[in-house]
Design a protein around this nucleic acid. Structure first.
Lengths: 244, 244
DNA sequence: CGACGTTTTGAATTGGTTCAAACTAAGTGG
DNA sequence: CCACTTAGTTTGAACCAATTCAAAACGTCG
């Protein structure tokens, strides 16, 4: 028996949405090149790069980031195992953002040449890959809503709910517990807040018994209350079956 | 001579990025069904809808919106002539947001059935349509940066710069002037601010001589200063030629 | 002219920032 | 195995950008 291919977490995600044929599985598995380790804090992709491959996350946590001229940093999406962090670079050659490893990661490249050939030969698979980038956009829109309309506690609650559901869908989390290797500074850069304020809000959520968060381990103690506080509705994650 | 097809503004945009063959032009033009007028303030698409077609903007202004349980409204993208407002609904069937006409619009449907057939027969055109949704995501990311990292004046300046460049690319604006039929309430819902504060910031930009804005007509008096204030870098709009 | 949508102004309030420092945990090397 | 370093978290107090609520002014259209 050979070990499961590295692409497995992506196939798991796709299978929730549609039927994938053995030929399609094979075509996906054939995309990935040799894996590479990236240490926590290192950038996988720099803003402005013109990669000739897209990077797939085999394990670990990373985040898309944009640096501002004034020294700020905004994280625009958290990516986990099974995600492509820059699939869009197949079409938008120059990276409009960078990607940083939040924890040690294992990643694998998918050459644009091979991806382009896949779009010529596998229309259904192409639509499923397109869907991956469409879900990225839906996540961005949802974050816009939280940044534009919700206060600090609500934003933090929303983020925790999103991460849990995505990790659960990838079979990385269950029972309302998950490892989340992010510092409060990272969190602040996601939520558009200062690190100090993130700390205060996090303590308040702990005090209210909604969640625990220590040593990189999160436990959600009251999902309903957290989802309500965060005004969380998972529809945008598109985790239901609905063939494309 | 027949009049130019309704799809023309989209082709104009695509031609800036890549070569489009006559056959491809024909395939795109064949997508659009009969036009429909939508009055300012009316929704083209409601959140939660499961449309069997994607809506193309022939003329006018519209915006994607999300309503929050607390009565808030966040606009997540402004769409202009040549944009699909919900191309992603081909793949993510249930709308995660609504679309409202900011001014009177003319729109046309592209049946999902026809779009899906196009993905089976025209791989290159499929990549160009995919790119449209990828640019939407890039716009969302950029807005996340402005909401998360920039103050009110900077956000407003950024928005004006983005709209001008997109309108100019669509040949709807030139000479740093354009019609923008948005109220200060709409603006507040884009920028994640209150209407009152938008008013104060707008007056301050006027006072500084950066722009004029009256009766729905915007004139940018000092592009460089506005772009600097808004930390505006147009790379994310992907307006350069770069074949896919 | 009257009405309604929109913009403008004022004054009090607040959620989040800023800056500075103390505290805790986890290495690392002597 | 303990001193030292470094990264991350927690606390305090002053401050400020943006909100809130209320009302007045403007514009335009029937």
């Amino acid at each position: 028996m050979s070990p499961p291919p590295l692409i497995t977490p992506l196939i798991e995600k796709m299978v929730r949405r549609d039927v994938i044929t053995p030929i399609e599985r094979q075509a996906l598995a054939a995309l990935l090149g040799p894996t590479r380790r990236v240490a926590a804090g290192k950038a996988l992709v720099e803003p402005g790069d013109r990669p000739h491959f897209s990077t797939f996350v085999v394990s670990g946590f990373c985040a898309r980031f944009t640096l501002t001229p004034t020294g700020g940093r905004q994280l625009t999406e958290i990516n986990i195992a099974g995600d492509f962090v820059d699939l869009h670079s197949l079409l938008m050659r120059q990276m409009d953002h960078g990607v940083v490893a939040l924890a040690d990661c294992v990643v694998a490249p998918a050459a644009h040449e091979d991806l382009r050939r896949l779009t010529e030969q596998h229309a259904h698979l192409t639509r499923l890959l397109w869907l991956e980038t469409v879900v990225d956009a839906a996540i961005h829109r949802q974050w816009l809503v939280t940044l534009g309309q919700q206060n600090a506690a609500s934003r933090l609650a929303h983020l925790v709910c999103e991460l849990y559901l995505r990790l659960e869908a990838a079979a990385i989390a269950q029972d309302f517990k998950f490892g989340l290797p992010m510092t409060q500074v990272d969190l602040a850069d996601v939520l558009g807040l200062t690190q100090v304020h993130v700390n205060r809000v996090l303590m308040e959520l702990r005090r209210q018994g909604l969640l625990e968060w220590k040593a990189g381990q999160v436990t959600i103690n009251d999902w309903d209350a957290l989802a309500k506080l965060g005004q969380f509705d998972p529809a945008y994650l598109r985790l239901q079956n609905d063939p494309v």
